[in-house]
């Protein structure tokens, strides 16, 4: 089962794509580099969410909590206690992991159905945003302003612009690779048995509690790390962006449009939809306010109607059809 992962690791297409992506900052204007950086943030977030939401089929809306801890908490640690942001990243990731484990345990212990799980995780997310807005240590409602990014790597600074883009590229690549690794490992199979049918999973002896917790902890920790990197890029820790359940809804949307439970699906969704949203806003936002939301909504709805399982399966079908006659001709 693991061969697929090593094949990916040694695949020239993978490294070629990464290399081409890495030279983008030299080719594109800073506006487009910014859009791509944002897209990579969401590639990383949607991919980390996919481990729980896609593979295990548990639609978690708690991920704003993990992103929020990674961003707001590590920012607060730096500003209020002077704790290095690298260390803050680790502390936040550990806290997120523990919280994720608690949520997974609650889900198992009380045998929550799909809808109850969605609502419970949403309640956790709402609680998180209320705590942040009411607690001055975390910046309260006005947020926190990080010191200027001077490119001091030891202080978790990447020099803005290009540096931030490369850092996000690396992080997004890691998140996608973790997806590939899990999907091709026993864990990935167990998660899919849980998604397909918990009862059948139990009948073959899958330890449901253990794997639900494992998936949630990995997912939560990744989301938290991405949160820390994101807030460093933004410089301003805005609670209404970083710990609002809206950010989770966006992630779920990207993952669904791209292809739930697939290694590259969420990445594809984010890479298409984030630039689309940003460019529509840039081009139309000033002429007719709200129009960009309208067009964006129509695009998303059309995709879901045409290919409910996401764009990746659609592309695969088109690719197979295009290759089909050639393969048949050979044999």
């Amino acid at each position: 089962m693991r061969e697929e992962f090593y094949k990916t690791l040694s695949s020239p297409i993978w490294w070629g794509t990464l290399a081409i992506a890495a030279i983008m900052p030299f080719v594109l204007s800073s506006y487009y580099v910014h859009i791509l950086t944002l897209a990579l943030v969401y590639v990383a977030l949607a991919s980390s969410w996919n481990i729980v939401g896609g593979m295990a089929g548990q639609i978690s809306l708690a991920h704003s909590l993990f992103i929020g801890i990674g961003s707001m908490f590590s920012a607060a640690l730096l500003l209020k206690l002077g704790i290095n942001m690298w260390l803050g990243l680790v502390i936040s990731a550990v806290i997120s992991g523990i919280l994720g484990a608690v949520i997974a345990w609650i889900d198992f212990r009380f045998q929550l159905g799909h809808l109850s799980f969605v609502l419970i995780t949403l309640a956790f997310a709402e609680m998180g945003s209320i705590v942040v807005e009411g607690w001055d240590f975390l910046g309260g409602a006005s947020g926190l302003l990080l010191p200027k990014d001077t490119g001091n790597f030891l202080a978790f600074q990447f020099g803005g612009g290009h540096g931030a883009f490369w850092m996000m590229l690396g992080l997004a690549a890691i998140c996608v690779l973790v997806n590939v690794a899990i999907l091709n490992s026993p864990l990935g199979y167990y998660l899919r048995t849980i998604r397909d049918n918990e009862k059948a999973a139990q009948a073959i002896g899958v330890n449901i509690l253990r794997y639900k917790i494992t998936a949630m902890v990995i997912s939560a920790m990744l989301a938290s790390v991405v949160g820390t990197a994101y807030v460093r890029y933004l410089t301003f820790a805005d609670p209404y962006l970083l710990i609002s359940p809206v950010i989770t809804i966006e992630i779920v949307l990207f993952a669904t449009v791209g292809g739930l439970g697939r290694a590259y699906g969420p990445a594809l969704g984010a890479l298409l939809l984030v630039p689309l949203g940003e460019i529509l806003r840039g081009k139309l936002g000033s002429t007719l306010p709200g129009l960009h939301y309208f067009i964006y909504g129509i695009v998303v709805i059309s995709v879901i109607l045409v290919t409910p399982r996401g764009l990746l399966p659609l592309f695969e079908r088109l690719w197979a059809r295009w290759r089909g006659p050639a393969v048949a001709g050979k044999s």
Partner: peptide, 24 residues
Amino acid sequence: LTPQARVELGIVQVPEGRLVFPEM
């Protein structure tokens, strides 16, 4: 014992309605 511990002992259920994993 938990369900998985019982499977390990050799008590195996073939659930009603077959419940295979359709996408695998």
